[in-house]
């Protein structure tokens, strides 16, 4: 029993017939070839598979693709605009927010979700927002710095606009 789903991924409309048991992460990676979303623990603990579903951070290994029917999805591939990295991506680059990089796409999307909701997060807010994302390399401090740096940049940007 295949089910037709229509989703928007990184701004592009997609329509596919999928098996109900297909997990969202496999839909993104195997059907759409968006392999930036990583498969980590597969048990909804590590957060490597985090994407934005209608703006909210979710673990795409614990969601069926059919549950996402009609949703607007953002993956790591959808953050950069016109060759310009997203401020959270820049933050990770400049503040050494990654080492091996495995957790990075999920971490960055968790950071983006936080800053969309709370442009002025405290360090505690940031640590709470990335509590669902495990990193085995950095010890988290540089990740916190990266998100703080992104928050500052986003504030400057919005000031320039206004």
């Amino acid at each position: 029993m295949a089910i037709r789903i229509a989703v928007k991924v990184n701004g592009r409309a997609q329509v596919h017939d999928v098996e109900p048991r297909l997990l969202l992460v496999h839909y993104l990676r195997d059907v759409l070839s968006l392999t930036g979303t990583h498969v980590g623990c597969e048990t909804s603990l590590c957060g490597a598979c985090t994407v934005l579903l209608d703006g909210q951070a979710v673990k795409s290994c614990t969601l069926l693709a059919v549950q996402a029917d009609g949703a607007d999805i953002t993956t790591i591939e959808g953050l950069a605009r016109d060759g310009q990295l997203h401020p959270v991506q820049e933050g990770f680059w400049e503040e050494h927010g990654l080492q091996c990089g495995y957790c990075t796409p999920g971490m960055i999307l968790a950071g983006v979700a936080l800053l969309n909701e709370n442009p002025n997060p405290s360090e505690a807010d940031i640590r709470r927002a990335i509590a669902g994302n495990l990193c085995r390399c950095t010890g988290y401090q540089h990740i916190v710095n990266a998100i703080q740096s992104a928050a500052r940049k986003l504030k400057q940007k919005s000031r320039k606009k206004s």
Binding site: S44, G47, V58, K59, L63, A113, L114, R128, A131, G132
Partner: peptide, 9 residues
Amino acid sequence: IGDVQVRNR
């Protein structure tokens, strides 16, 4: 409960 992603779903 859980973490941000879990609480969102």
